[in-house]
Write a protein that binds this DNA or RNA. Structure first.
Length: 482
DNA sequence: CACTAGTGCAA
DNA sequence: TATTGCACTAGTG
């Protein structure tokens, strides 16, 4: 289904049945049997038919391949398809089969500890609220906060008033209950989604967690991970760190984590050839500090952590195609102030400004954007009559080449690393990819060799106008490998 | 059991 | 009114 995906990344379903329906005009193909003198005969069967043969998926795929191969060629996607995505299948299969080990007893201990903490917070919440209710129900929580306690409502949702983290943080300034709710939410989220759920998914034969890496899901060329999603394991906060400590290496092995440092901003520097960005990255400078100096007009020595934090948010916002309103919401400052930041940024980075304008113009003209590896994303939003949707299209046009190129780059490095590990007969195994990070399991005595190999291949996956930088570390658990 | 809404975890 | 995902619970049908 890779071909269908590359030809139309905007479509959500790239499973066999949907693609058959779209390209072949049938629900599903069945392979007729081997009795037909070696000649393949196809017949159409409904999806829900009880008459299913083991060869039908392969037969359908073969037929689709003949149909889609010329389209792949015609759209200039052949290299991407045959040299990147197809070879990557085996790499991902190896990673899925390898799985990752978790410390189940440790997770269980966390669970008990969290259970107690949650129960104690619960008691306080019921006492403050004056009644018991389901804290996990936004509907019931609204009644308590906005009706019983008469706290000021903030944002609206489709069905009522929002009780999300931003709202609760504001309410916490005026009442003691919201703080307890936040604590409760955090703990029950981490307990329910990770600490309790993951141990149940450990495979009985391998004793490890096996994810699925989905190659035909995202609009930008990233992978996704599901069942379980191992690309959103917590990392922040006390409990986030603890959960990562429960991702461990096999006895005699270490977990090796290597991640690209600011790969998206480096890609943006490359694509835009912006003087300031290129200068910072060529000298391995602190990009957020540099932006902070520009925004606040102070020398490096006078920068405060708050100034750098704001600049970091601005830099991220740039990659997403920021608006003054969005930035003000993110920073919790007036829109006027955030507008000044954006204007100042673009005055100091005319290269980025011009690149973004060019990109949007080209996207509107061609109807799609491309990454540096020729991956395409149609952006029909740019032709929409609704201004909000058109502006969304502009943000997609800005973000996709950057996020997509970063995805391309790490895929190249995965292929090169996988091949070298095989050629050089190393026992190191690639386990996970988390967008800009790779996680390996490495025999203790292979650590130095593997670290050198991985760093080398990631930093040299492609040649850009600025160097690619990789941070790398190894430890018995995932938390310590960072 | 399938689906939506709200929420929140990651890059 | 910031990009890309996945999964949890509550609630509904």
């Amino acid at each position: 289904m890779l071909a269908s995906y590359l030809l139309n990344p905007n479509k959500s379903n790239h499973n066999l049945e949907d693609v058959c329906l779209e390209y072949l005009g049938v629900k599903k193909l069945a392979y007729n049997d081997v009795t037909d003198k070696g000649k393949l005969n196809f017949r159409e069967v409904p999806v829900d038919s009880a008459t299913c043969y083991s060869g039908e998926d392969a037969a359908a795929a073969l037929k689709l391949r003949k149909l889609l191969a010329p389209a792949i060629e015609k759209q200039g996607l052949a290299k991407l398809f045959y040299d990147m995505e197809m070879p990557l299948i085996e790499v991902l299969a190896d990673m899925e089969m390898a799985g990752v080990k978790i410390d189940v007893p440790l997770m269980n201990a966390f669970s008990a500890e969290m259970e107690k903490e949650i129960a104690s917070i619960e008691k306080r919440i019921y006492f403050i609220a004056g009644e018991e209710f389901n804290i996990n129900s936004p509907k019931q929580l609204q009644e308590i906060l906005f009706e019983k306690l008469s706290l000021r409502t903030r944002r609206k949702t489709k069905t009522g008033f929002s009780t999300d983290i931003d709202v609760l943080e504001q309410l916490a300034l005026e009442h003691e209950l919201p703080r307890e709710i936040i604590e409760h939410r955090t703990l029950s989220k981490l307990k329910g989604t990770y600490v309790d759920a993951l141990p149940r998914l450990v495979n009985l034969k391998t004793g490890r967690l096996h994810t699925s890496f989905n190659q035909t899901v995202t609009a930008t060329g990233r992978l996704s991970s599901s069942d379980p999603n191992l690309q959103n394991i917590p990392i922040r906060g006390e409990w986030g760190i603890k959960i990562r400590e429960a991702f461990i290496a096999e006895k005699g092995f270490l977990l090796l984590s290597s991640d690209y440092s600011q790969i998206e901003l480096r890609v943006l520097a490359h694509l835009s050839i912006d003087e300031g960005f290129i200068e910072v990255f060529r000298h391995d400078g602190d990009i957020h500090a540099r932006t902070a100096m520009e925004l606040f007009g102070v020398p490096a020595g006078e920068l405060t952590p708050e100034m750098r934090r704001r600049a970091k948010t601005v830099n991220f916002g740039i990659v997403y195609g920021i608006s003054p309103f969005g930035l003000s919401k993110q920073l919790g400052i007036p829109p006027d102030e955030s507008r000044d930041y954006i204007e100042t940024f673009f005055v100091k980075h005319k290269g980025v400004r011009d690149y973004m304008n060019r990109t949007i113009e080209q996207a509107a003209e061609a109807g799609f954007v491309s990454t540096m590896f020729g991956r395409k994303r149609p952006i029909p939003e740019l032709k929409n009559t609704n201004k909000n949707i058109r502006q969304l299209g502009e943000r997609l046009a800005i973000n996709t080449p950057v996020q997509g190129a970063a995805a391309d780059i790490i895929k190249v490095s995965m292929l090169n690393i996988w091949r070298r590990l095989k050629e050089e007969r190393l026992k190191t195994r690639m386990l996970l990819q988390v967008h800009d990070e790779l996680l390996f399991e490495v025999p203790e005595d292979e650590k130095d060799l593997a670290m050198a190999l991985v760093k080398e291949e990631m930093e040299n996956a492609v040649k850009l106008e600025v160097p690619l930088k990789v941070d790398i570390g190894a430890c018995v658990n995932w938390a310590g490998a960072h």
